[in-house]
Design a protein around this nucleic acid. Structure first.
Lengths: 117, 117
DNA sequence: TGTCATGTATCGTATATACTACACATCTGG
DNA sequence: CCAGATGTGTAGTATATACGATACATGACA
């Protein structure tokens, strides 16, 4: 499992090969953090940043927000809000689905999307 | 919507009517926190405690852990871990189910429980 | 070859979280 | 009526979170 920082750096340097605007400094500036801070995060010297900053990084680097948040050890606060509104319901559901294979979950998602409840 | 602290106090005093062991001080002691701390929490003077302490409170007062955590503005860390392992999957699922009525979610839960994937 | 950009090292800070310790007034049961 | 239990006010602390500011060495490129 590649670390959050490693992942960021790999992604950034990949983008950089075709676009010089993806230097650490320039990315940091667009994201609104200090270059030194981003440097330490990419090298795993500091822990992943806050949810807000992680989301701006995801946007900047074209990554899926939920996936990058997961790599940062977090769960999006809007997902948490959904769970908190019906805790028993969603706690049961998630624990049921914990072991389920991806295709089973996907079929549930589709079923719900198309379902006429 | 009744506040976390109000809820705790109501629950504790309800139990107390039939069992003198549910004084604030004794509950605090069994839970492993200072009485003054529990007092301020029950009155909403301080924010809800940590996940660990909230879980001990739930156990002590016979409450559902996930529900009490939700009242404390939190989501159980084991649920978060489940989501973090397959972020896209579960993020999609939860956002799909956000608006779904309870009975629809319940049927999904049952379906998964009985399902032969 | 000098200048500008790059990544990084060092140091420091503001804010939030999650409590403890102690003292005190009130109340209650025997 | 009084000793012990009860709830609470005040003050303080330890730790984590989430960064900023500055300076510096290296490297590219014009």
């Amino acid at each position: 499992m590649t670390h959050f920082g490693d992942h960021l750096r790999q992604r950034r340097e990949a983008l950089r090969k075709t676009d010089r605007r993806y230097s650490l400094r320039q990315v940091a500036q667009r994201v609104g953090i200090e270059p030194a801070y981003l440097s330490k995060i990419e090298r795993g010297d500091l822990r992943p940043p806050s949810e807000a900053t992680t989301l701006r990084l995801a946007s900047e680097l074209g990554e899926d927000p939920d996936v990058l948040l997961a790599m940062a050890g977090k769960v999006s606060s809007d997902l948490q809000a959904i769970i908190r509104k019906r805790p028993k319901m969603f706690a049961d559901l998630l624990r049921q689905l914990k072991q389920a294979p991806n295709h089973a979950i996907l079929s549930v998602v589709r079923e719900v999307r198309d379902g006429d409840w």
